[in-house]
């Protein structure tokens, strides 16, 4: 096996990250780590900076302090080539899908393959159609434009695009928001299945308690500019921190605990 294949045990390590937007302090010493092969959740109320943290992990934003390491590389010290390599290693599902509206679903999914590989068109087409099926979209969806898709289909198409190059890391920004409970449940199951099939490490931003209960292996709760709790569900739920109590012992959380598991 070549060295390129090795994914470190700690896929992502965030240490003491500080983020500020003007006077607005978002993160003040956020630290967490994501292990290989797990589905990791970033949780927290609106404005707690979970999406910001995700954007910092995927090189869209730079933290004002602290370090972030992804696949063993410090994001602050990346060279041009390393950054390009790193971007090949992950797939990102944006909250609203962010499909290119001028391209069909098949073109959206095949974009990276066309740009970064020299595979023959026939093979790319086969891969694209396979991915589209894999995420549970019907075959005819391939030739539709994003504007013609329903919300759930946009998410699935966007997931197929994120998976096009077989990434090792998958980032999901609120994958189930805007889906009905049945669709959200199906999407969660899909992510579980894909993780097992494709050997992925998944980082998802979510505030869907159902997702936390069903798919997430470990997660961090952000609040007060920091990580107030990190670990498995059993570990976090025992934490006495008021934000954690609010989340899991508020009316909705209690309901879930009563029916859950």
């Amino acid at each position: 096996m070549a060295a390129d294949d090795e994914v470190p045990e700690e896929v992502i390590r965030v240490t003491d990250v500080v983020t500020r937007f003007g006077d607005n302090l978002v993160h003040d010493g956020v630290s967490l780590s994501v292990r290989k092969g797990e589905i990791y959740g970033l949780m927290g109320g609106s404005g707690s900076g979970k999406s910001t943290l995700l954007k910092e992990m995927i090189l869209l934003l730079r933290p004002d302090g602290g370090t972030i390491e992804v696949l063993g590389r410090n994001l602050a010290e990346l060279g041009f080539e390393e950054a390009a390599w790193l971007r090949q290693q992950w797939g990102v599902l944006f909250q609203s899908g962010a499909l290119y509206s001028s391209l069909t679903v098949a073109q959206n999914v095949g974009m990276k393959l066309r740009e970064y590989t020299r595979l023959p068109e026939k093979v790319i087409d086969e891969i694209v159609r396979m991915k589209i099926r894999m995420v549970g979209l019907p075959d005819h969806a391939a030739d539709l434009y994003p504007a013609e898709l329903s919300g759930g289909m946009v998410k699935r198409a966007s997931l197929a695009r994120a998976l096009a190059m077989d990434p090792r890391l998958l980032f999901l920004d609120e994958p189930t928001s805007g889906l009905d409970p049945i669709g959200a449940e199906a999407f969660d199951q899909l992510i579980l299945k894909l993780r097992d099939m494709l050997d992925l490490t998944v980082v998802m931003v979510t505030h869907d308690l159902d997702s936390i209960w069903t798919v997430v292996d470990r997660f961090a709760v952000l609040g007060d500019h920091q990580v107030v709790a990190e670990g498995t569900l059993e570990e976090v739920i025992e934490q006495p921190h008021p934000i954690v109590r609010q989340f899991f012992w508020g009316a909705r959380g209690r309901l879930r605990s009563a029916h859950g598991q």
Partner: peptide, 14 residues
């Protein structure tokens, strides 16, 4: 063969 992903496998299958 070292690592093989779905693009590689698909090429072979094709």
């Amino acid at each position: 063969v070292g690592r093989m992903d779905s693009a590689g496998m698909m090429l072979h299958l094709h």
